Amino acid sequence: MSGPLAGIRIVELAGIGPAPFACMMLADHGAEVIRIERPDAKRGGPGGDPAKDILLRSRKTIAIDLKSAAGIGVVRDLVASADGFVEGFRPGVTERLGLGPDVLLGTNPRLVYGRMTGWGQDGPYAQAAGHDINYIALAGALHAFGRAGEKPTPPINMVGDFGGGAMMLAFGMVSALLHARTTGQGQVIDCAMTDGAALLMSMIWSFRGQGLWRDERGVNLLDSGAHFYDTYACADGKYVSIGAIEPQFNAVLREKAGLTADPAFDRQMDPRGWPALKEKLAAVFATRTRDDWCAILEHTDACFAPVLSLAEAPAHPHNAARGTFVEAGGVIQPAPAPRYSVTPTTTPQMAGERTDTENVLAEIGYTTAAIAALKTGGVVA
């Protein structure tokens, strides 16, 4: 394995969404991640095709029956050899399985035990079901997403599941792993998507505290309120993005768009004029196609980029030059990020339909006879 986390072993209890993404990131950066699935999990069946599931890339899989005492024993043996453990169940579930923090850290005091939930391990909502949209709603983030006079618009599930959840957990795991290596002391990470989504809004809270942000949608600097920070439709129905905040960049935009002579644009930061200026700018962008505007504005300081679809993004010259997207197992997908000058990230490898059960158990000391007995008893598959 390559990457700065080479030599780190993480055990992952199979789940969906943010916990797998966090483990994908750890694997991307060199950790050996072993994913535990149920023996009856339909790999490649109606629940999804593991060969095309990007969130499952670059790790091993072992199938264990967690409803059996013998299966729980296998998990404990596996975790005893690990640096980290990740689970994404409701609070109390792993304790009832016999895989709670007290048990696993009792065996492996250096273990970093990562817990991924929406609401957190405690609090009035802790045991309630929920999804990204609910977590970012309670965090105060969802209220900020949307245009003036319209209802809140969920930004798909980037803010709760992946930004406030998975990436916070990956950061927490690495931080706690560093602490464990220094001190020999493991610990539990309580990663709640609501907490993480709130944290991602730190700059907006800062603006609000300074009187620079109104607590309503679509009227502020960064939420489509300003004419110089928005998307615009072109003559062909495609869109461009503009983010010309700084005066010098806004001047370039005005010059390239032929708006230098219009004195109304001189009062860039006066919110009272934003609606009218937005109408003017929209009319200008509607006169040309997106490709026309790319020819005019790309590679300038107008803070411009075309709005690309998922189908278009991998082929854009900038993304192609940097290798922002890669193909693995016939699936186009984002490449690991960020990048390192010395320890390159792992080349993505897609999951297969078979598990790595026998190899993983052999690595932690199980004999061929012991593995065969577990298989015969249905404990592993």
Rank of each mutant, 00 (worst) to 15 (best):
I10E: 13
A14L: 05
A14H: 10
G15W: 14
P18Q: 12
A19M: 03
C23W: 04
C23V: 05
M24K: 15
M25A: 09
M25Y: 14
H29C: 02
A31V: 00
P39C: 02
A41S: 11
R43T: 09
G48E: 10
P50H: 04
A51V: 06
K52C: 04
T61A: 07
I62E: 01
D65N: 05
S68L: 11
G73Y: 15
V86K: 12
E87Q: 10
P91R: 03
R96N: 05
G100P: 01
G100R: 15
L104A: 02
L104S: 01
L104Y: 03
L105A: 12
G106L: 01
R110Y: 15
G114S: 12
G114Y: 00
G120L: 14
G120T: 15
D122Y: 08
G123S: 02
G123P: 02
A128S: 14
N134Q: 07
Y135K: 06
Y135M: 00
I136N: 04
A137P: 02
A139I: 04
A139Q: 05
G140I: 12
H143T: 14
A144S: 09
A148E: 06
G149N: 00
E150S: 14
P152R: 01
I156C: 11
M158N: 04
G160I: 05
D161R: 06
F162W: 14
G163I: 07
G165F: 08
G172V: 00
M173V: 10
V174D: 02
A176W: 00
R181Q: 15
R181I: 15
T182E: 12
G184A: 04
Q185N: 09
V188G: 08
A192V: 11
M193K: 01
T194S: 10
A198G: 11
A198E: 10
S202E: 14
W213N: 04
W213K: 06
R214W: 07
L221P: 07
L222D: 01
S224F: 15
A226V: 11
H227S: 15
D230C: 13
A233D: 07
C234E: 00
Y239F: 06
I242S: 09
I242N: 09
G243V: 00
G243N: 05
A244G: 08
I245Y: 04
Q248V: 12
A251C: 07
V252W: 10
R254P: 13
A257F: 00
L259N: 03
L259M: 13
D262C: 01
A264R: 09
F265N: 02
Q268E: 03
D270I: 00
W274L: 02
W274G: 04
A276Q: 11
L277H: 11
K280L: 13
D291Q: 04
D291F: 01
I296M: 13
C303N: 02
A305Y: 12
P306R: 14
L310G: 14
L310T: 08
E312R: 08
P317M: 08
E327Y: 08
A328M: 07
G329M: 02
G330M: 02
G330C: 03
I332N: 13
A337S: 10
A337Y: 03
P338D: 00
R339Q: 08
V342M: 15
P348Y: 12
M350G: 12
M350W: 05
D356E: 11
T357P: 00
N359K: 09
T367L: 07
L374Q: 00
G378V: 02
G378K: 09
G378A: 03
